[in-house]
């Protein structure tokens, strides 16, 4: 794709009620990403085409969309991985209500997060009020904290996308968030009750769709959701633990590894 040439983008135009795909032609050149094409279309022929973006470098997670049907960040999707002989379809994330064009109402995610119990550290380890943590112990939590909140995992999760369980289910993003807190070496909050109950982790049947679309390559299912499910099982369904707990209540801090 060394030279400049014309390409067609079929972009969703609409509001919260109706919409349709509209074709735009624009010139594309080497190295361009989908977001560049959208910006060009804005500047050339559709100045009111609504889209979210900020960093244009895959760090802020604003420009999530569905490109040729696949959930992706527009800023990190190079045109040379797409079939440019056909019109490229660009549409908003479909698991969230539409606001306008490519912009969706993702406020549900912020409401769910706010209900998750905040970080609660143990007492400082040193007299100066600081803690000691070792790199090997923080690495898995650092993986979760790479999350840029693009909500592509929420978009693709069938519990939300097909079954619309937004009122009952927190979605993969928030299991990553819960896992980051639960496995944080300093955190002493009891979280598994919320993960099981209010967040309804049981709805997830580990199809790994979320993992596949994560632009940060977080192993959402394997490293966050499955370990949380295991902890929930140990906590609530293991008969020996249950019996044991009748005799002796264990504070969570002791259970921490």
């Amino acid at each position: 794709m060394g030279e400049q040439r014309q390409a067609t983008f079929s972009v969703w135009r609409g509001d919260h009620q109706t919409g349709k795909f509209v074709d735009y032609k624009t010139t594309v050149s080497e190295g361009m990403v989908v977001l560049d094409a959208i910006h060009q279309i804005q500047a050339e022929s559709a100045s009111d085409l609504a889209c979210r973006w900020n960093c244009k470098a895959g760090k802020c997670g604003s420009c999530s969309a569905e490109i040729n049907g696949k959930p992706r960040l527009m800023c990190m999707t190079r045109l040379d991985i797409l079939d440019m002989t056909q019109p490229v379809t660009v549409e908003p994330m479909r698991s969230f209500p539409s606001i306008r064009d490519l912009v969706t109402d993702v406020s549900w995610n912020f409401r769910v997060k706010k209900r998750i119990k905040p970080f609660k550290p143990r007492k400082p380890d040193a007299e100066d009020g600081t803690w000691r943590m070792y790199q090997a112990d923080v690495e898995r939590v650092q993986e979760f904290r790479k999350c840029i909140e693009c909500f592509l995992c929420q978009d693709v999760c069938h519990v939300l996308r097909e079954h619309h369980k937004h009122d009952e289910f927190a979605g993969p993003r928030h299991f990553v968030y819960q896992a980051a807190l639960e496995m944080h070496p300093l955190d002493v909050e009891e979280r598994l009750g919320q993960v099981k109950g209010e967040n309804a982790i049981g709805y997830c049947n580990i199809t790994k769709c979320c993992t596949k679309v994560c632009p940060e390559h977080i192993a959402i299912t394997d490293n966050a959701i499955i370990p949380l499910k295991e902890r929930v099982n140990d906590e609530f369904y293991d008969p020996i633990t249950k019996l044991f707990r009748i005799f002796r209540a264990r504070p969570k801090a002791e259970r921490k590894d």
């Binding site: 550290p121 009020g129 803690w131 000691r132 923080v138 939590v141 650092q142 944080h184 300093l186």
Partner: peptide, 20 residues
């Protein structure tokens, strides 16, 4: 910086477990 750690930030660590 230390206050961010108290609020949940996890910086890379030194060998003796401090903030790198």
């Amino acid at each position: 910086v230390r206050e961010l750690e108290a609020w949940g930030a996890i910086f890379d660590r030194t060998r003796d477990g401090k903030i790198l």
